[in-house]
């Protein structure tokens, strides 16, 4: 537990860096991340120089005035929009986008900068930078796992594999929807995986795309695994896994009902929470209630 706590603390102190680590695994993310963080660290240094000393996160957040934070935010929004365009062109991993934002926010709120580029305090920063570079205790397992996954047919749909440090070092895969069903079969049946148990079945609207998020647990191997399945937003379709895990049946109905994801091959895809006549899918971010009487 003390280890966990340490890691937790560590993870937040230098969340920016861990997240960058995520982006690093994707070359596109890296390229995009670099110029952005420069722009930001400038904003950060401005603020930092006003304060004249590096502040720890706890002190930094409440003390720092609203003005510099807003400035930094504006900056980040701008660069965000630029990057979004790039994303659209290169169809890059939106993970990198998230990671990029994460880099900005903690920096804007608190001062510990993570890159010794233009800042005059290398001695203070160094420990912060180095700590998160320690690989997670789950990293070797994930590396081996990914090597085995790469041998599978359709493994080009595996977009990313990383460790979610905050979440008790949860190994997480990001895959395209096309591959989900065959991956699910592999995860459920292969003797090295045996993920028989669905811990959680969730869905997220990222506005650029939808995601089905499944958390699995393997009782024989005592391993947890998070899988994020990317689904197109306009044509939200993905193969059903209700015959692979019985637990997915109602959950897919719920995701269909509230998030508007169609699970192809589902035995009984009806609305489950709302009435059959309901218009729209409320958990979509652009949902507008439909009411004839108004």
């Amino acid at each position: 537990m003390s280890d966990q706590k340490k890691e937790k603390k560590l993870a937040t102190e230098a969340k920016a860096v861990t997240n960058e680590g995520v982006a690093m695994s994707d070359s596109v993310g890296k390229e995009q991340g670099a110029p952005k963080s420069d722009a930001l660290s400038q904003g950060a240094t401005e603020k930092g120089s006003a304060k004249n000393q590096p502040v720890s996160k706890e002190q930094g957040a409440p003390k720092s005035g609203t003005l510099p934070r807003e400035e930094a935010k504006k900056g980040s929004e701008k660069s965000d929009s630029v990057r979004k365009e790039q994303d659209a062109q290169t169809s890059a991993n939106p993970l990198s986008e998230q990671a990029g934002e994460a880099v900005t926010k903690p920096q804007a709120a608190s001062v510990p900068p993570k890159k010794p580029t233009a800042t005059p305090r290398p001695a203070v920063k160094k420990p912060v930078v180095e700590k998160p570079l320690e690989p997670s205790r789950k990293q070797p397992w994930l590396d081996k796992f990914v090597v085995r996954l790469k041998e599978l047919e359709g493994s080009e749909h595996l977009e990313d594999a990383f460790i979610n440090r905050v979440n008790h070092d949860l190994p997480t895969l990001v895959v395209k929807g096309e591959w989900w069903r065959s991956l699910a079969l592999h995860l459920r049946n292969h003797p090295d995986c045996q993920f028989h148990y669905v811990q959680n079945f969730s869905s997220v609207d990222y506005e650029t795309h939808l995601e089905v998020v499944v958390h699995l647990f393997s009782f024989p191997h005592k391993e947890r695994l998070g899988v994020r399945i990317k689904v197109d937003r306009t044509e939200a379709k993905v193969d059903s896994v209700a015959d692979i895990w019985d637990a997915a049946n109602w959950n897919e109905r719920e995701a269909y009902d509230l998030m508007g994801i169609t699970f192809e091959g589902h035995p009984d895809l009806r609305r489950i929470m709302l009435t059959d006549q309901w218009v729209g899918h409320p958990l979509r971010k652009d949902y507008v209630p439909y009411d004839e009487g108004v």
Binding site: T12, K15, K105, N164, Q199, N200, H215
Partner: peptide
Amino acid sequence: LRVPEGEVYAGVESPRGELGCHIVSNG
């Protein structure tokens, strides 16, 4: 409370079983 960007799923043992909470935060 500004929660840093990230995603987390945490389950606890409720009297009825695993009660989990999956949060996606954008900071």
